[in-house]
Amino acid sequence: MRRLAWGAPFCAIAALLAPWELVSLIFAAPLALVMPGYAIVSAAFARRELDPARFAVLSVALSLATLALGSVVLNYVPGGIRGVSWAVLLLLVVLGSARTAALRRDGKSAAPRGSRIRRLNHVELGMALGALSATIAALVLASTTLPAKDALGFTELWIVPVPESGGSEARIGVRSEEQAATEFDLGVRIDKGRLIRRSFRLAPGESRVFTIGPPVASAGSAVPVVATLLLDSDPRHVYRRVSGSLVAPEAR
């Protein structure tokens, strides 16, 4: 219980302060997925003996139950559901239950004694490490983005108003999701007359954003904008077209 009482705050602080998610998870996982249940089971079974397997299962399951129910509790706490409030709640559960366990157990230890595990020989250790390596390799392979030559590439074209411009400016974006570098011709017509042309080349996954406006028009009037994207290799066909409008700003 003493280790739990020291370990829980340490894990909470380390998890909250850790700069990387994976490091934070190393501390957060025992704090969230083991310690609350372990402390609750220790308190509930302070005067009984529970074998290690059942103790372990209940520890994980009751930790999950604590998380499910804890979110409902935190929902009604000032500040709501945040990292700090979760850490505080879990600490309260762990320390409160550990204290209860210590008071109830009358000097007897509730936590099960771990069975002695035989040391692995070199071959067994090699196999265990092999299993771990294969699992990590599988997860890395699964998370790796791979080429898919038969997947049809495409290009995105969009127009959205610049939020802080009051509608007088817009961003026109082009993002290539093509399989190979592609040359584009972008034409933007503002109202009936003004035409802006841009030619550029985008590698797969690359994007280019242009800002247009404000328009030259009477104040407050809306001016249509049409953006047309052509493939440099096939300039006679419209590849993408989007439209929007610009609002002429009030004179200052």
Binding site: A12, A15, L16, A18, E21, S24, L25, A28, A29, L31, A32, L33, L64, L67, A68, L69, G70, S71, V72, I81, R82, G83, W86, A87, L90
Partner: peptide, 25 residues
């Protein structure tokens, strides 16, 4: 909200995405 609430614990404490926090839960 039991599942999402439990997942939010790992998300808010560690900064993990809902995918990885959910996978752990």
């Amino acid at each position: 909200p039991g599942l999402e609430g439990a997942t939010s614990a790992l998300m808010t404490i560690t900064g993990l995405s809902s995918y990885w926090a959910g996978a752990v839960i």
